[in-house]
């Protein structure tokens, strides 16, 4: 079937299209302007405001979410381009009463100050530890977390938190004792 893109669209046309997003295991049917980025869809249309906008240009990582288990900057992709794939945001990770180990570690090691970059940092850390080759050294953690800027300078705590969760996973007994 052909799509009706033939002919010059009217300058002002911004007709909404159906978009289905699967976020944190739940399906959401929306009608969206095709211009809506995945980030804005999550924040403005679905209420997942845990994912933050720091630059809207792929330059800070505050908008990091997992799409099909990969971390991406949700500000540089359109919502319509991310249908039929599982999307996980910070809200899908854990709640204050049932925190994910990385969330706990961020609190314990003070891996944040203002908290604005934190959702992105945590989503990156989850991808790093659960879906990518585990980092072998602190230097590697630092390099692979460098797509998430933190203006408050919480980097030392972030590295500690990730290292501890990695070590606990490698060596559960020692990890618990620590």
């Amino acid at each position: 079937m052909d799509n009706p893109e033939i002919g010059q669209p009217d300058e002002t046309a911004d007709v909404a299209v159906p978009v289905t997003l699967t976020v944190n295991g739940r399906r959401h049917d929306l009608m969206l302007d095709p211009r809506v980025t995945l980030l804005d869809a999550l924040r403005n249309y679905l209420g997942f405001t845990g994912t933050k906008k720091g630059c809207d240009q792929g330059q800070c990582g505050a908008c990091t979410v997992l799409v099909a288990d990969r971390r991406i900057d949700s500000c540089l992709t359109l919502a319509v381009m991310n249908q039929d794939v599982p999307i996980v945001t910070i809200e899908g990770l854990g709640a204050p009463e049932s925190l994910h180990p990385i969330q706990k570690a961020f609190i314990e090691h003070d891996g944040f100050q203002c908290g604005y970059c934190t959702s992105g940092q945590i989503m990156s850390a989850v991808a790093l530890l659960e879906h990518e080759k585990p980092p072998a050294s602190d230097t590697e953690i630092r390099e692979r977390m460098s797509g998430n800027l933190c203006r408050c300078g919480a980097y030392p705590g972030i590295v500690e938190a990730i290292r501890c969760v990695r070590d606990a996973a490698r060596n559960p007994v020692a990890g618990e004792a620590a």
């Binding site: 403005n44 845990g50 945001t89 910070i90 990770l93 204050p96």
Partner: peptide, 21 residues
Amino acid sequence: IDRVDGPLKVTGGAKYAGDVS
């Protein structure tokens, strides 16, 4: 002492001005 606002911040639950709808 751990930050008392920590659990809200690590779960995306802390509402910043731009999050208000």
